[in-house]
């Protein structure tokens, strides 16, 4: 007994799905173009005891001497954290707390002075924000979209 197939044909369903995926991609790119601007990225603040010592835009962060290291087969390059802190007038500290937006991570990382080595840097992500990175910082501990460097 032949049964006629009711509803949409498989090819039609596949084309609808494919079209939907392309529409999602187009919508995403459109949203990015319409809703984002360089001003959307908040400046990086260096603070101590609630006082803002310095603020740096992403452009200003790029002016710092570039440092790099290789980890997990990828070269990480960016501005040295110690350079950024020194420019803000921070020469001595015992602890550094890195705060981020926490979109894809815990959003906070605490490092002792000994852990903040010369090769700990603020790596520039494809999104235009910075993330903390270092040879001794585990991938899962990295804080992305860094907004505040708090020293104590």
């Amino acid at each position: 007994m032949n049964e006629s197939r009711q509803g949409l044909k498989p090819r039609t369903i596949a084309l609808i799905v494919l079209g939907s995926l392309l529409a999602i991609i187009a919508a995403a790119w459109g949203t990015q173009l319409l809703l984002t601007s360089p001003e959307d990225i908040a400046p990086l603040q260096v603070t101590r005891e609630g006082t803002v010592l310095a603020e740096y835009s992403m452009e200003e962060l790029r002016d710092f001497p570039s440092r790099s290291f290789t980890q997990f087969g990828k070269s990480e390059e960016g501005s040295g954290v110690l350079d950024v802190l020194a420019k803000a007038g921070v020469t001595e500290f015992e602890r550094l707390t890195v705060y981020g937006l926490g979109i894809r991570d815990d959003g906070v990382l605490v490092l002792t002075r000994d852990q903040v080595a010369e090769d700990v840097l603020l790596d520039f992500a494809n999104r235009g924000t910075v993330k903390i990175a270092g040879p001794d910082i585990e991938w899962g501990d990295r804080v992305r979209d860094v907004t505040i460097l708090e020293v104590e």
């Binding site: 995926l21 999602i24 991609i25 919508a27 995403a28 790119w29 949203t31 990015q32 173009l33 809703l35 984002t36 601007s37 959307d40 990225i41 937006l101 979109i103 992500a125 494809n126 999104r127 235009g128 924000t129 979209d145």
Partner: peptide, 24 residues
């Protein structure tokens, strides 16, 4: 979920095009 948690829209839209493409 991020919008519900109050993440600024601008930050969420950053790199959204590439992210959507690579996710797919």
């Amino acid at each position: 979920v991020s919008l519900a948690l109050g993440i600024p829209t601008g930050y969420l839209a950053l790199g959204l095009g590439l992210s959507a493409t690579t996710h797919i």
